[in-house]
């Protein structure tokens, strides 16, 4: 058994060809998931019991089952249903990329909505009362007071979820997608060299994670610029 460094050099470029797909999965699911999360969060804080309950049920199901199962249900399970095969969305569900996006979006939407709700609940009530006392209506308070403050409060947890999403994209390899992990697995199947391939792939993911964390830290600093007491009066 030997550690073949040259194998890393020949395999790495092939794996990095999958990085485009990895990022497509990450960004597309991230953005769509965030939009879904905002809708779910608004449903939960709307005060209308039926919206709240519906959102809670959705979140409960998607946070309580493994993402891999969700991916399989969409990719393998949906085509079995006639109304999917004959529906207008069939082009999406027929394609593994479409299925991966759908599953990842539905999953991350559930997690992020709870993170956003945590931010909204964390806003100091006194500030909202001051807004009320000044005559601001509910929508104005939510737009100008709650949203900016909640966004800053939610950011650390959101950053963690983005990294989770990155790791979940690797599961796309289980439904034939040629992302970085998918390519790596096929190389390992040919070369029987799991250490070299998987370790170098892990390092690639760790580097991407590092940059995402740095980006999040920068956004955190910018959003929190009013919390820094630079220079007293």
């Amino acid at each position: 058994m030997s550690f073949d460094v040259s194998l890393i050099f020949s395999a790495l470029p092939k794996m990095l060809m999958g990085i485009g797909l990895t990022f497509q999965l990450l960004v597309l699911s991230g953005v769509l998931g965030l939009a879904l999360a905002i809708v779910l969060m608004l449903m939960r804080v709307s005060g209308k019991w039926y919206l709240d309950w519906l959102a809670q049920a959705y979140i409960y199901v998607f946070r309580g089952t493994p993402i891999l199962v969700q991916i399989f249900i969409v990719y393998y399970g949906f085509p079995q249903l006639e109304f999917i095969r004959e529906g207008i969305l069939w082009p999406i569900f027929r394609d593994p990329f479409g299925c991966a996006i759908v599953a990842l979006t539905l999953n991350t939407g559930a997690y992020v909505s709870e993170i956003l709700r945590g931010g909204v609940l964390g806003v100091d009530h006194g500030i909202l009362e001051a807004g009320e006392a000044l005559g601001l209506n509910r929508r104005q308070r939510f737009t100008y007071l709650t949203t900016p403050i909640a966004a800053r409060l939610a950011l650390p947890a959101y950053g963690n979820d983005v990294i989770s999403l990155l790791k979940s994209t690797a599961l796309a390899s289980t439904i034939t997608l040629a992302d970085m992990t998918g390519i790596a697995r096929s190389i390992v199947a040919q070369t029987y060299a799991p250490y070299e391939i998987f370790i170098s792939l892990a390092i690639v993911y760790m580097i991407i994670t590092f940059f995402i964390q740095k980006l999040m830290a920068r956004i955190e600093r910018w959003l929190g610029r009013y919390t820094v007491r630079t220079g007293q009066t």
Partner: peptide, 14 residues
Amino acid sequence: GTPEILVILLLYFG
């Protein structure tokens, strides 16, 4: 920073 599936594959095959 490493996907769970990767850790499992690495540990098992490795």
